[in-house]
Design a protein around this nucleic acid. Structure first.
Lengths: 329, 329
DNA sequence: TTGTAAGCGTTATCAC
DNA sequence: GTGATAACGCTTACAA
């Protein structure tokens, strides 16, 4: 047995108002209608508690006013901030958000795409790891942080610039023995450029920059060993560390303190992402802040843009630096 | 111009496979069909890249396999954990999640309800602050943390038990001058019981328990003043503080340290929620852990339950205690 | 078993 | 302007 056999339809409203079906439709689509007719229809609708059935409408118009947001998860602070802003932006434009979580699993990503395509979403915003995702080329798609191909616009922070900014800050704060630490999935992405940007500054200054790049599955142990292996006489061989994200930075800070080092007195530390713990509280560490809100605005704007003939292939948004207690300001 | 005028339909598949339209439908609904027919249909569908149009199906069947999740936001760690788990649970049952954010605004909450009702969701899971939300009584609804009425099931943590647990832990850890601190919206909810439970333990022990309850809009200033006002000779009048959530606990810890007090040596602190910073890292503070996953499982289970005649009115799930550095263990 | 046809609740194209 | 009427893509009796 189905629930709710009795939901009023346009036909009911038309009968109640004593007008034709088409007239009711026009009222609900803001198409000119005699003032008195409109009033009668509106009253009848209110009396009956009528609401447009968007499934019927979607079937007819091929437009559902909904978009899918595909993310690895929504607990990682950066992703949750992204979800928050994208959802708000879509809502502001009267779009529903269908949220799909993938746990960064490639086949799950593909399944999500399938599902939302069947569901006739008007577009997809995705942050995915599958480099060869099959997606209907006629369906608007905006990728965050990964670059697919010329015709799929990608929105990202200026990761290269962020890496440079981190290096410049460390320089400005007196660091001369830099270290870069990174943990990643192994899938090439825009975030790779953080290292490129960071390295470029030191190279230009003719300063050696050490680095350690680990795959997710290796865990944090190797970082700890690496740091311990670079201690000499109670001091670390580095005085400025740039971590690929805040999560890592917080963990590295703990490792450094375990080694008896003080942050920021002995070693300064900069992370990346600029996520705050709890709503409006401080940062976890000094950090390069990603413009999450602009990322969301831009993605949604691009996704919903009418003219899809000349979309940019990559949009880079400016990052900024924020002190968070792990640098000597 | 609409995009994708050319999406293949069942009719196309039927023609391609040389069978009748109804047969194709049966294949996609797992209704018995001649083995050879089935094969032909499946092949034709693959060749054409056919996908069921769930809008047409939903219109016909009055079932959309989608549920709405209504939350204040998705950046507050507890909400984001909830979103994560609810979304996963729904996906595991082949349901899409429509995410609606309300910023705890009552009229926004009502608008969300309207929107998802129009969208013919099969059910709603909501964590809302509007005590008299209008929602179609025929639409399955599960409320998290707020109790509406007998026929709207509410799923919550055992907040009373959690308050008791916090008190018992503090007792066990040697506290004899307890304090309860709370920040809230002013809307009565299940979380009120944290104080009830906490207070009940001290009352039974004939120990006075101080408390300060602030409204959200008052900000944190009064807490700071209150604490400062209870300092005498470099010591605080309390030795054990229970905060209504981890967010507050972290802030209070900072306030205490500003006053020159050491946590947990001078004052012990317990929060509530049990959210970890970043994925699988430690807790922000010693805390009463909400069983987020079970909360989600239970809500989704209740929402999708076939027999809606005898639903529980309130389901309380057990909490647990986790040390997090702000207590002397 | 398989084919046929009548809707589901809209929108859109017509004559009026 | 307003009112019939034919789709939209699918499910589901019912007939073959």
């Amino acid at each position: 047995m189905k629930r709710k056999e009795n939901a009023p339809t346009m036909k009911d409203v038309a009968r109640e108002a004593g007008v034709a079906l088409g007239t009711v439709s026009k009222v609900f689509n803001d198409i000119p209608v005699g003032k008195d007719y409109r009033r009668r229809v509106e009253e009848a609708a209110r009396r009956l508690g009528y609401q447009v059935n968007s499934y019927a409408r979607g079937l007819k118009t091929n437009k559902t006013c909904s978009a899918a947001l595909i993310l690895p998860d929504v607990t990682t602070p950066f992703f949750s901030a992204l979800a928050q802003n994208v959802c708000q932006q879509l809502a502001a434009r009267q779009y529903k958000t269908i949220l799909s979580l993938t746990a960064s699993d490639r086949s799950a990503e593909q399944r999500c795409i399938q599902m939302v395509q069947q569901n006739k979403v008007d577009g997809i915003i995705g942050l995915t790891y599958n480099p060869d995702l099959k997606v209907d080329p006629d369906l608007p798609y905006v990728s965050i942080d990964r670059h697919f191909s010329r015709d799929v616009p990608c929105v990202a922070s200026d990761n290269f610039g962020g890496g440079q900014l981190a290096a410049e800050k460390l320089l400005e704060l007196g660091c001369v023995r830099p270290l870069f630490l990174r943990m990643w999935s192994g899938v090439p992405g825009e975030a790779d450029k953080r290292w490129d940007g960071f390295a470029s500054v030191w190279r230009q200054r003719r300063i050696d920059c050490a680095s350690l790049h680990l795959k997710d599955e290796e865990g944090y142990g190797p970082f700890r060993e690496f740091l311990a292996g670079h201690m000499e006489g109670g001091r670390l061989a580095f005085d400025g560390v740039f971590c690929v994200n805040d999560d890592l930075a917080v963990r590295v800070r703990a490792m450094l303190e375990e080694l008896g080092l003080r942050v920021p007195e002995d070693v300064q530390l900069i992370g990346f992402d600029g996520i705050r713990r709890f709503a409006a509280e401080g940062f976890h560490c000094s950090t390069i802040v990603q413009p999450v809100q602009r990322l969301a605005e831009t993605s949604v704007g691009l996704l919903l843009q009418e003219d899809r003939s000349s979309l940019p292939s990559l949009v880079c948004l400016p990052v900024s630096y924020a002190p968070g207690g792990t640098t000597r300001e």
